[in-house]
C-alpha cells in the first residue's frame, strides 16, 4: 500500500495526489498538521524526512521525499502506458528535467508569496511576486509558441508528462499569491487542458474546468 504524508493546502502535496488520481492508484493518506501545528518540523516527522518538508511517500518500505522525485518514481513504476515519464526516450527525459527544475523555481516564488500572504511566512512578498511574473512570462511564451506548432503540453510528446503535473499546482494557485494570470492567455488555456486530463482531481483553491467546446 502506498502512503502519502500530506497537507491539504500544499501544492507540492497535490502533485502526487493528482498523478495517483490520474493513474488510478489507491493510497493511504496520513494528514500532517503543517499549519498551524508545524508538525513537519516535529522530531517524529524529522525522522521520516530530515529536510522537514512535505510531501513524503512511502511504498514497499521505500521512503521518498521531494515532490518531483515522487512523480518520477510513481510514473516509472506504475504508469502502464509509459507516457508520463518515458524511460526509453532520453530527449524527453531531459526536457522533463528542465520543467521539474522550473517547477521548483515556481515553488520558490509563487508558492513563497502565497505562504507569506496566507500563513505569514517571513518572505519578501513583492520580490517573490516579481519572480513569479518573470517565470510566468517565460512559461506563457513557451506554451504560446507550442500551440502554434501543435504542441499542447510542456514537453514535445503529444501527451502530458510529469512536467505538466509538476508545474500545474502553484500556477493554478497563483491568485492566492497575488499573481493574477490575466496577462498569460496561453497559461490559462494550458491550465484548462490539464484540468481535462481523465482522472484529474482538484484541491482546495483549484476548481475543475467544464468540458471543452468541440472545434
Amino acid at each position: 500500500m502506498i502512503t502519502l504524508y500530506d497537507f491539504e493546502l500544499s501544492g507540492n502535496c497535490y502533485k502526487p495526489r493528482l498523478l495517483m488520481s490520474i493513474l488510478g492508484l489507491t493510497y493511504e493518506t496520513v494528514p500532517v498538521d503543517f499549519y498551524p501545528g508545524r508538525e513537519h518540523k516535529s522530531e517524529a516527522f524529522l525522522k521520516l524526512n530530515p529536510f522537514g518538508e512535505l510531501p513524503v511517500l512511502v511504498d514497499d518500505g521505500l521512503v521518498l521525499r521531494d515532490s518531483q522525485a515522487i512523480l518520477i518514481y510513481l510514473a516509472s513504476k506504475y504508469d502502464k502506458t509509459g507516457q508520463w515519464y518515458p524511460l526509453s526516450d532520453p530527449a524527453v527525459l531531459a526536457e522533463i528535467a528542465i520543467w521539474h527544475d522550473f517547477a521548483n523555481r515556481i515553488t520558490a516564488t509563487a508558492s513563497a508569496a502565497r505562504l507569506g500572504l496566507s500563513m505569514f511566512y517571513d518572505v519578501d512578498i513583492e520580490a517573490a511576486q516579481a519572480g513569479a511574473h518573470q517565470l510566468f512570462r517565460l512559461l506563457d511564451e513557451h506554451l504560446w509558441f507550442g500551440e502554434r506548432e501543435g504542441r499542447d503540453w510542456l514537453c514535445a510528446p503529444s501527451h502530458p508528462t510529469t512536467a505538466d503535473i509538476a508545474c500545474f499546482p502553484y500556477v493554478a494557485l497563483s491568485e492566492e499569491a497575488g499573481v493574477p494570470r490575466q496577462d498569460y492567455p496561453a497559461i490559462r488555456r494550458w491550465l484548462d487542458r490539464v484540468k481535462r486530463i481523465p482522472g484529474f482531481t482538484v484541491m482546495s483553491g483549484v476548481f475543475p474546468a467544464g468540458p471543452a467546446i468541440e472545434a
Binding site: E8, D33, G205
Partner: peptide, 20 residues
C-alpha cells in the same frame, strides 16, 4: 485534532478564491 483541522481547512481553502 489534525483530522478535524484538515476538514475545516479544506472547506476554507475552497472558499478562499471565491472570497478573493
Amino acid at each position: 485534532i489534525t483530522d478535524m483541522r484538515r476538514f475545516q481547512q479544506t472547506i476554507f481553502g475552497q472558499d478562499k478564491p471565491i472570497l478573493e
